[in-house]
Design a protein around this nucleic acid. Structure first.
Lengths: 337, 337
DNA sequence: GAAATTTCTGTTACGCGTAACATATTACCT
DNA sequence: AGGTAATATGTTACGCGTAACAGAAATTTC
């Protein structure tokens, strides 16, 4: 076969039945408006030709694409997979397709991705960041699509933010560590994004409040178990007297814990370790990891619900939705005295 | 403001400069064909109006969407994040947008997702499965877009498969375990997809070859660390004499390991444990986990390269690309004797 | 059985960027 | 200057599903 058969259109289906494409279109959208006599004929023509609905023409006619653009900094980060799961648990039953893109924590990459997504006429946008370039704000305004920022509850939001208070969460965990007798606490950070900075702030505030000297180690690399181990070795060199590690996420914390094991450092007796987010593994490992349990799925779900509501023309109800977090002490901190 | 301003079109930009949209279109695509005198004027009109390129009209004109649909069974599964990273490392520089969708290991959901993606006129499809419904095969054929199946190297592929030999990998690891003195090996599986079945096959073949009795535990639930712990408890009840655990992925293996720790079962002395895929954590933990290291990023990269080549009209070179895997013995198996 | 109503199908126009072709303008050459 | 070539811009048509309106057919009503 040399002639490349192109995919069938409504017209092809209509021709085969001997009607107009309008009737076929109706059969697909509002079958009750089409005579029963035609149903079978149309259906078999659809089947025989293998018609695949095409959303594009309708997208062009200024109608809706029924696609929502979701931007996350990273796919490998477990956190976002869970947020997305929550998000899609709402959008998918509602018939919206997710267009997922990631930008590797880079603002300029975020800008490029947003332009691309808007180029596909997404009906709305979910962002995972609260800091954006000026052009991003322009584009969003010009495109006129609803936007929700996730992951943090700082204001002012572009339109609406749904998240939790990263700084307060970090403050609370630091105080818990201090109350458990860990005073020389080092903070481990990777990939310095806006949220990480907020977490460090909370940590530093708590340390200062208790007249302790904050000290944080940062790396530009992505966080991973291996990275946590590296940071621990580095920290032991720079602060041999440390007795606590607070990590910006569970991966680093667990990596640091393994390194302690390798070096024969007892946890939590000599060093207490805390993570952030409360992934499945933090509760499964031995000892269970102290961590801040964050509302990941709920965040995604709420973002979806609010976005859908706004797509139906309803106004923004709350500009900032601040979800609660929870501290889990695990067994990687010294016991309560 | 009551009147909802809609997003500017090329015509709006052209009007502002006093030219036709065609010239503006050319300025964006082939600026060298537009007189220098106009460049500045057009650019400032674009900036002032905040024009956002719109791909949809061109998609309609049977041109290409420059989007590729990627289907994975699950986003929370680390494996696929890494495959996607490899994939996008090629497609993104080439100017292709990924439309990611997941189907929770369900064939009918896969079918629905494929229909949706084709509705957005994706230029190509990447699937993570080799078993499909008949309708899926029909749709793909009718749509006439190139398709690549990832994750396994079984033939026959719809058009082209890129992966590794799941069954052989499983066979090899089972033999390694046996050679290390683990003979009463139980296989842990979650979510019975086609790949898992292949892995079980390999395990069973190796067991039988050595006159050992295969025994596998399966669950419909998603795999997780917690799930690995549960399966271990279950296995100890049903096979108290077991001395080896081979898991369909690292998560289950690590969860099982933690449960051993909790129960005071020495690993690898009493029970040897092996996982599958070789994620970062498997090499970071103590003891390091025995695992099958699979070519995840490379698989994604190759899939992308082959798909792009076919989008340029080149023919399929190899119908099945079988990538090598590698065994990592770690310290969770008994030492070589 | 004719008018009124309901049900069903058809017609027309639209969205917007771009390929292909046509025209206009400028540059270049002898 | 006349003519050819090169450059720059404009014109037209197209893709395909659907809303809005129009018209035709069937059904109901008295």
């Amino acid at each position: 076969m040399t002639a490349k058969k192109k995919r069938p259109t409504l017209q092809d289906v209509a021709d085969r039945v001997g009607i107009t494409k309008m009737t076929v279109s109706r059969y697909l959208k509002k079958p009750e408006q089409v005579s029963i006599a035609l149903h079978e004929k149309i259906q078999s023509a659809l089947d025989e030709l293998g018609y695949i609905p095409n959303k594009v023409p309708d997208m062009l006619s200024s109608a809706k694409s029924h696609a929502i653009g979701v931007l996350v900094p990273s796919l490998t980060n477990q956190v976002f997979s869970e947020v997305i799961r929550g998000f899609e648990s709402v959008t998918e039953p509602a018939g919206y397709q997710t267009m997922l893109a990631h930008y590797g924590y880079s603002q300029s990459a975020e800008e490029a991705r947003i332009a691309t997504l808007l180029g596909y006429n997404v009906d709305g946008l979910i962002l995972s960041e609260s800091a954006h370039t000026e052009r991003v704000r322009r584009m969003i305004k010009t495109a006129g699509v609803p936007v929700i920022e996730m992951m943090d509850s700082v204001s002012p939001a572009i339109e609406q933010a749904i998240g939790f208070d990263n700084s307060a969460a970090s403050f609370a965990m630091t105080e818990l560590m201090i109350s458990r007798g860990h005073h020389n606490i080092v903070y481990f950070a990777a990939r310095m994004d806006a949220r990480t900075r907020l977490k460090i702030q909370g940590y530093e505030q708590a340390m200062r409040k208790h007249n302790l000297e904050p000290f944080s180690l940062q790396t530009e690399e992505a966080s991973s178990f291996t990275r946590g181990a590296l940071l621990l070795r580095q920290a032991l060199q720079q602060r041999p007297s440390l007795d606590g590690i607070f990590c910006t996420n569970d991966d680093l914390a667990i990596g640091a814990f393994y390194e302690c094991q390798r070096q024969g450092i007892p946890v939590p007796e000599q060093i207490g370790i805390a993570g952030f987010h409360g992934h499945d593994i933090s509760g499964a490992m031995v000892p269970r990891l102290a961590t801040v349990v964050t509302p990941r799925e709920e965040m995604g779900r709420l973002a979806a619900e609010n976005l859908l509501s706004r797509l139906q023309g309803k106004p923004v109800t709350e500009r900032v939705i601040d979800l609660p977090f929870r501290l889990e002490a695990g067994e990687s901190l010294r016991p309560e005295s």
